[in-house]
Amino acid sequence: MAKMATTRARRTPIDDFFTSLAQEQSENAAGVILSGTGSDGTIGLRAIKERGGLTLAQESAEYDGMMRSAVQSGLVDMVVPAEDMAEKLVSYFRHPSRIDSERDRHKRDVAEQLSRIAALLRMRTGHDFSGYKDNTILRRIQRRMQVLQIDDPAAFYERLREEPQQVDLLFQDLLIGVTSFFRDPHAFDALERLVIPRLFEG
């Protein structure tokens, strides 16, 4: 019985579901944490964030363990009342960066602001993202714009300039993909087989 109880205690169906959702839907995934006890769901939110999806948590509830765990992890994009979640989801997925007819134009507009945004990141965090792939940074910037419901990249730049905490949040988004590398056994296997031996070649 004790063994069965331990097994049950370790079950994390929401984490499992969110992780599977992230793998299948990537940036089209959205994870919503509602009322509940424990911390189930927090690990799954990381998987969704790593693949560019959206994460939300309910603002308050009688049983708030899952919500508090998610928010304290820093992985939640929006903390909103349950009754507002549907509207937030619809607005997020209707952003111009996600509409086929608008996507290319929006990406070009964001690219025009890239150097200015990178300069803010460098001043605020000390990290230089000039060596990163532009497409990776552009996707993360567009994701933050979706979260904030800002259509105009110039307006997003001004928001970053006026609210330094938004620079921090963008910085966290940019680092999400980097930290996932260090948990990927395939990446380390490739390093061991292909990269490290060459470092010691005469």
Results as ranks from 00 to 15, higher is better:
residue 76 V to G: 02
residue 43 I to Y: 07
residue 102 E to I: 01
residue 99 I to T: 08
residue 106 H to C: 05
residue 55 T to C: 07
residue 13 P to F: 07
residue 21 L to F: 10
residue 78 M to W: 10
residue 17 F to Q: 10
residue 13 P to A: 09
residue 124 R to H: 14
residue 163 E to C: 06
residue 157 Y to T: 04
residue 164 P to Q: 08
residue 5 A to H: 13
residue 200 F to N: 13
residue 102 E to V: 00
residue 122 R to K: 15
residue 107 K to T: 11
residue 147 V to G: 00
residue 64 D to S: 12
residue 48 I to S: 01
residue 98 R to Y: 09
residue 44 G to L: 04
residue 157 Y to E: 04
residue 53 G to M: 00
residue 196 I to L: 14
residue 146 Q to F: 01
residue 30 A to E: 02
residue 116 R to G: 03
residue 156 F to H: 03
residue 42 T to W: 02
residue 154 A to L: 05
residue 132 Y to R: 09
residue 200 F to L: 14
residue 149 Q to I: 08
residue 45 L to D: 00
residue 171 F to L: 04
residue 105 R to L: 11
residue 10 R to V: 08
residue 66 M to E: 06
residue 1 M to A: 14
residue 192 E to Q: 15
residue 112 E to W: 05
residue 72 Q to T: 10
residue 75 L to Y: 08
residue 141 I to N: 01
residue 120 L to E: 11
residue 108 R to N: 12
residue 199 L to V: 13
residue 178 V to P: 05
residue 114 L to P: 00
residue 126 G to F: 07
residue 51 R to G: 00
residue 8 R to I: 12
residue 139 R to D: 15
residue 75 L to Q: 03
residue 187 A to S: 14
residue 12 T to Y: 07
residue 165 Q to T: 10
residue 75 L to F: 09
residue 158 E to L: 10
residue 74 G to Y: 09
residue 64 D to V: 03
residue 12 T to E: 11
residue 94 R to C: 10
residue 132 Y to N: 11
residue 43 I to K: 12
residue 166 Q to M: 08
residue 75 L to H: 05
residue 123 M to I: 10
residue 98 R to I: 03
residue 81 P to L: 06
residue 24 E to V: 15
residue 55 T to E: 03
residue 197 P to R: 08
residue 81 P to A: 07
residue 167 V to E: 05
residue 19 T to P: 01
residue 57 A to N: 02
residue 123 M to H: 13
residue 117 I to Q: 01
residue 174 L to R: 02
residue 172 Q to T: 11
residue 202 G to I: 04
residue 166 Q to N: 07
residue 130 S to K: 12
residue 61 A to M: 04
residue 61 A to G: 06
residue 201 E to F: 08
residue 146 Q to N: 07
residue 167 V to T: 11
residue 76 V to R: 00
residue 157 Y to V: 02
residue 168 D to V: 05
residue 196 I to W: 14
residue 66 M to G: 03
residue 176 I to H: 05
residue 175 L to G: 05
residue 77 D to M: 04
residue 152 D to Y: 02
residue 184 D to S: 11
residue 91 S to I: 11
residue 178 V to I: 13
residue 182 F to C: 09
residue 22 A to C: 08
residue 162 E to N: 12
residue 18 F to G: 01
residue 119 A to I: 04
residue 130 S to Q: 13
residue 83 E to I: 07
residue 175 L to H: 10
residue 70 A to N: 03
residue 42 T to I: 01
residue 44 G to K: 03
residue 8 R to D: 10
residue 188 F to N: 08
residue 67 M to Q: 13
residue 5 A to L: 14
residue 82 A to R: 07
residue 64 D to T: 04
residue 178 V to R: 08
residue 14 I to R: 01
residue 11 R to L: 15
residue 156 F to D: 03
residue 200 F to S: 12
residue 95 H to E: 06
residue 179 T to Y: 11
residue 202 G to D: 14
residue 142 Q to C: 08
